[in-house]
């Protein structure tokens, strides 16, 4: 059969670079929706080479791989090097659920001094550094859709959303960016 097909992600070629704000589609990544009770956290952390965060709204990251706390037994694991995350967890025998959602999500990188304000056009959470410090992450809403928001730097966020909502999320970010 033919060679493997390249990923054709949503938002191909979409970006915005305006005063104080940049919107870029994130590079393709592998993603895992990881569900596990406390009993499996240790072995999963070991298998992934990354401590699964235990506190709400926190994340851990290492070498292009990150684990975002989404709920008391739920994490989103992202690997920017497109490593096989399902395979990594396959060896863990403790009860857990590792489901590949690499293609379910699309991510938009929102950065610049205006990033916080632009996101607050649709996100009702307090995104000040005190309330949402670097590394903080949360599933939340953005306008009329759900996103996962992760602050990677003081002025940089990663917005993960479902593939078919990415057009809406990008357009709303763009509209918000117009509001100087």
């Amino acid at each position: 059969m033919a060679d493997a097909i390249a990923r054709a992600s949503a938002l191909e070629g979409r970006f915005l670079n305006d005063e104080g704000i940049t919107l870029v589609r994130a590079e393709p990544a592998t993603r895992l929706s990881l569900r596990a009770p406390k009993t499996a956290v240790k072995s999963l952390s070991k298998a992934l080479g990354l401590d699964l965060p235990q506190r709400p709204k926190t994340s851990t990251a290492k070498d292009g791989r990150a684990a975002l706390w989404l709920g008391p037994d739920e994490w989103l694991v992202i690997d920017e090097n497109e490593a096989d995350l399902v395979g990594a967890c396959a060896s863990v025998s403790a009860f857990h659920s590792a489901v590949d959602v690499s293609h379910r999500n699309t991510a938009i990188l929102v950065s610049g001094p205006r990033a916080e304000a632009v996101l607050n056009a649709g996100c009702p959470q307090d995104l000040s550094l005190d309330a949402f410090p670097v590394g903080a992450c949360s599933r939340t809403v953005f306008g009329k859709t759900e996103i996962i928001l992760w602050r990677t730097e003081k002025d940089a966020f990663r917005v993960e959303c479902w593939r078919s909502f990415s057009d809406y999320v990008f357009m709303l970010l763009k509209a918000a960016a117009r509001d100087r």
């Binding site: 009329k144 078919s164 909502f165 057009d167 809406y168 357009m171 709303l172 509209a175 918000a176």
Partner: peptide, 16 residues
């Protein structure tokens, strides 16, 4: 209404 008009009135979902 804010941003929620026109193309942003509601998300329009499209398949690949």
């Amino acid at each position: 209404v804010g941003h929620g008009k026109g193309r942003l009135f509601e998300p329009v979902r499209r398949t690949p």
